[in-house]
Amino acid sequence: MEEHTGLFKFFDGIHPISAKAIEALRKICFELAMPKGKDLQSIGHTCRTIYYVEKGLARTYYYKDGNDITELFAFENSLIARAESLFTGNPSKKGIQLLEDSILIGIPSPDLFNLYDQHHDIERLFRRIFEAAYVETVNRIESLQFHTAEERYKDLLSTSPNLLQRVPLKHIASYLGITQVSLSRIRAQI
């Protein structure tokens, strides 16, 4: 049986790669099972691994003025990493925490980057992944700048309909850039 089938289906939906590239990637991947509440990467850690969420849920978070702020949710069939740390080699001011018991597939970035010269289709695949992540980040910033909290909440529910069953309200509120009281008010009006 082939390992990491979900990961390679995910990759195929972004940019198909050759059988040799798949085998090369498969050799560097590793599986990791971690319980809810654990940090996959703690604040101050230098990110050297890209994670694919096979099962479970993770979030990127940071602290501002003593408040725990959620920046991103990563559900099944998505990638999570601290890109600013991954590319600069500097420690991240953000952490990655698991919100559910999770099974992840890790891709060590030094090994991945070494494959770029041997397999240009891998390089193109990850260029497209990082481009999409950049666009998603810009869209998130623009959402915070130009949309009301209610609009952001409705958009979040439309893109992640089972979010309320899986994520504590305090994390949803901080992701939306509002207090839990404001989130309760919005939820009561909808």
Rank of each mutant, 00 (worst) to 15 (best):
L7F: 06
F8H: 02
F8A: 00
D12Y: 03
D12K: 09
I14T: 03
P16D: 06
A24W: 10
C29G: 14
F30S: 10
E31N: 12
E31L: 14
A33F: 14
P35F: 04
P35I: 05
G37S: 11
D39L: 01
L40K: 01
Q41H: 11
S42W: 07
I43G: 04
Y51S: 02
Y52L: 03
E54S: 08
L57K: 00
A58L: 05
Y62W: 14
D68A: 04
I69F: 13
L72Q: 14
F75I: 01
E76R: 03
A83P: 02
K93A: 15
K94C: 06
G95E: 06
S102C: 08
S102L: 02
I103V: 13
I105W: 01
S109D: 15
N114V: 14
Y116K: 05
D121L: 07
D121F: 03
I122E: 04
E123M: 10
F130K: 09
Y134V: 07
E136K: 13
N139S: 12
L144Y: 15
Y153C: 00
L163T: 03
L163H: 00
V167L: 00
A173C: 08
A173H: 03
T179A: 12
T179Y: 06
T179L: 05
S182R: 08
R185E: 08
R187D: 01
R187T: 08
